[in-house]
């Protein structure tokens, strides 16, 4: 019924580079990233809620994360056709 407010940013993750420090999990301020205790790896569980803030990527010393924003998936919601 309603248009979606989900974003379509993507997060590329290279598990082979990850050393399991957990900083990316702590960094996410909107609960996109969860922690897999057993394998000591991040789980990118709610990517549709990502705000492309880049904080997780900036925390990862091993360059295992790349955030790829899809700006067009964010709304402006102004009442002129080009800014919907």
């Amino acid at each position: 019924m309603f248009p979606t407010i989900f974003t379509k940013h993507t997060i590329e993750f290279d598990p082979s580079k990850c050393v399991g420090c957990g900083l990316c999990y702590k960094a996410c301020f909107v609960d996109v990233i969860r922690w897999d205790e057993e394998n000591r790896k991040p789980i990118f569980k709610y990517v549709e809620d990502c705000e492309h803030c880049f904080y997780c990527q900036s925390q990862c010393k091993k360059e295992a994360i790349r955030v790829v924003p899809n700006y067009a998936s964010e709304r402006l919601l102004q009442s002129f056709p080009q800014y919907k």
Partner: peptide, 16 residues
């Protein structure tokens, strides 16, 4: 939740 948030945003976001 997002149905509700969508509606609230449609009310408050347009600057007029």
């Amino acid at each position: 939740a997002k149905d509700v948030i969508d509606l609230v945003q449609r009310a408050v976001v347009p600057i007029e």
